[in-house]
Amino acid sequence: MISRYYKVPMAYAAVLLIALIAFYALPQYPQSPDIFKGEEFSSLIEKAVEGKLAEAEGIAMVGSWEFQSQEKTLTVTSAADNMGTVVVVSNTDTEQDKIIINEYINSPLIIGRIPPYKLSLRGKELVISSPPELKIKLYSFSRDILAQFSPKTEQSHLEISGFLPDVLLYLQVPAGMEVKADEFGPVHLIFAEEQ
């Protein structure tokens, strides 16, 4: 007969055993890329300016838009609630009368979670509305008691939280189209190098 003292511990031991079997029977284990390990945003901008976005690692396209325009000028504005938005402008790659905008983010883990910007062309004005601040909850696990035997790398997200994913808009306009934005507004225009 099992003593009353053993009933609770034995039940817990059974739960632990089942958990152990279940854990090692899992078909696959979550192993997402680290959210803080995409292309540095400054490096992403640099590559966009040089027309080498295809070479950037750890980036993903969030959205893509195409507009027809026969205007000679384009003013990029944003909704009042926008935070700083970086727009890299290239005027070499598109067909006549066509404006193409691609939205990139420098963290593949964010893709699927972040809604794209809302863009609309009103005559000579391209209006950018960013979605409201997106709150993402993520979880990480520690190597626990064995951490003391590991070299101190990748252990703590607290130590590397200086890097955060950010959004870049890559705007391609027909050759000859002048693009401008309010100097003190939330849109930061950066012009790509001539190819």
């Binding site: 601040e133 709150k135 993402i136 993520l138 990480s140 520690s142 626990d144 955060l164 950010d166």
Partner: peptide, 16 residues
């Protein structure tokens, strides 16, 4: 941590 576009909360789980 956040930058206006994104606000990320990372909760760590350990055997502590």
């Amino acid at each position: 941590t956040g930058n206006g576009h994104l606000n990320i909360t990372v909760t760590t789980f350990s055997s502590a």
